[in-house]
Amino acid sequence: MGQVTSSTQHTQHQSSSSSPASCPVDHSAFAKHSQPSSSCPVDHTSLAKHAQSSSSTTSCPVDHSSMSRASSSAPAQCPVQPETLDPRNHLPVLTQDRAPSQTIDLPTERTTSSIPRDAAGQWEYPSPQQFYNALVRKGWETPENEIETMVEIHNFLNEKPGKKFKNGRRKSTSVDEKLQLVRFKGRPGQLSPKARFWLFAGWLLPDRFNTEPPFDRHDWVVRRPSTGEEVRYVIDYYGVPPLPDGSPVFSLDVRPALDSFGSISMRVRAATREAWGKMATEATHT
């Protein structure tokens, strides 16, 4: 009778071995060494009650009810908030403070450009100190004694597009007014469709077309104050072989983006003028 009881309990132990409430006693060994009247020393009744009242072993140890009550007042947010960018140029506010690793003092004076920002005045270029802080922020290692020269080149390259779209607008309309640069964005590494086309042409005919991509790209949004019309210009900056004296030379491709019928019309008129001008020059030389 005792052996039958022990055998039955052993079978139940095998079928429920994954349960945390299984009997810890090896019933098979117990049955071999016990007398027929012996029984398991573990109270299986209380063990079963404990198994019914306990939760799964894979339950989360955190009290979710209290956690949900504590967090119900505010949604979860990322503790790292993105820095505020100036919507006009998509850049953070650059300080005039020295960088931690900086070894020499850099000028903090800013140069006023010839490019109108609004009716109140023109845009200001960053100072050498602000320019250096921007390079440090991007992780670019640049000799500090070359920063002022880099700022001069930067300002020179940004003056050229202003003159180009100003001349283009004067040719396309009889109204002479100061266009305003509302906002702009640097997009280095993002090739425009036109730049991709010329790269493909250079791949096909490397002896005739440029095979180097532009080293920089800007998108400028220009406003005409009399009508409030805004036109986006795409500017690709190319480097060309330097002059014999070593002076750097740059080539800028400035044109309206194909965002509207007016911009498309401007592009067509500009291309027509350029083609006629080239034909007239060739005819003169012949």
Rank of each mutant, 00 (worst) to 15 (best):
V62T: 11
P79R: 09
A283N: 03
A76E: 07
G121Y: 03
K166E: 14
G239A: 06
Y125K: 05
P241Y: 00
L252E: 06
E83L: 14
T8S: 04
E141Y: 06
R169M: 14
A275N: 00
D259F: 09
E230V: 01
F200D: 14
T103E: 09
S260M: 12
R217E: 06
S54M: 12
A70Q: 08
S73G: 13
H33N: 05
Q129T: 14
R267G: 10
T58W: 07
T142F: 15
H13A: 13
G186W: 11
F261H: 14
F200W: 12
E124L: 07
L85Y: 03
R208W: 08
M150P: 00
A76V: 14
S174R: 11
S56R: 13
C40I: 12
P248F: 02
P100T: 09
I115Y: 03
R187C: 13
V136I: 14
Q122T: 11
E124N: 13
L106Q: 06
S174A: 13
S54L: 04
S65C: 01
R217K: 10
F250D: 06
S46H: 05
S260I: 12
A70R: 09
P206N: 07
S38Q: 10
Q129K: 03
H10K: 02
V62W: 01
V93Y: 07
D63M: 01
W123M: 07
D245N: 15
E124V: 05
K185M: 11
E212Y: 01
L157F: 07
S68P: 00
K166N: 12
A257Q: 11
A119I: 03
T95P: 00
V175I: 15
S38E: 12
E141N: 13
S192H: 11
S127C: 04
S114K: 10
I235N: 08
S55N: 11
S72Q: 11
V80I: 15
E141M: 08
A99Q: 14
S73P: 01
P61T: 09
T286E: 10
R137T: 14
L243P: 00
P92N: 08
M279Q: 06
M150Y: 12
F209R: 03
L106S: 04
V254M: 03
P143Q: 05
S251G: 01
L205T: 09
A283C: 02
L199N: 08
S113M: 09
V80Y: 08
M279C: 02
R183V: 01
V234F: 04
Q52R: 14
P242D: 13
S6P: 00
A270Y: 01
T149P: 00
R273L: 05
T173I: 01
P225W: 08
N133T: 07
R232E: 15
E144I: 07
G139M: 05
E141K: 13
S251R: 02
V62S: 03
V221I: 14
R183M: 12
F131S: 08
E230Q: 15
T227W: 06
T272K: 01
I147Q: 01
T103N: 02
V234Y: 01
K164E: 15
A51Y: 09
W198M: 10
V4D: 04
G189P: 08
S68H: 08
L191Q: 07
T8V: 04
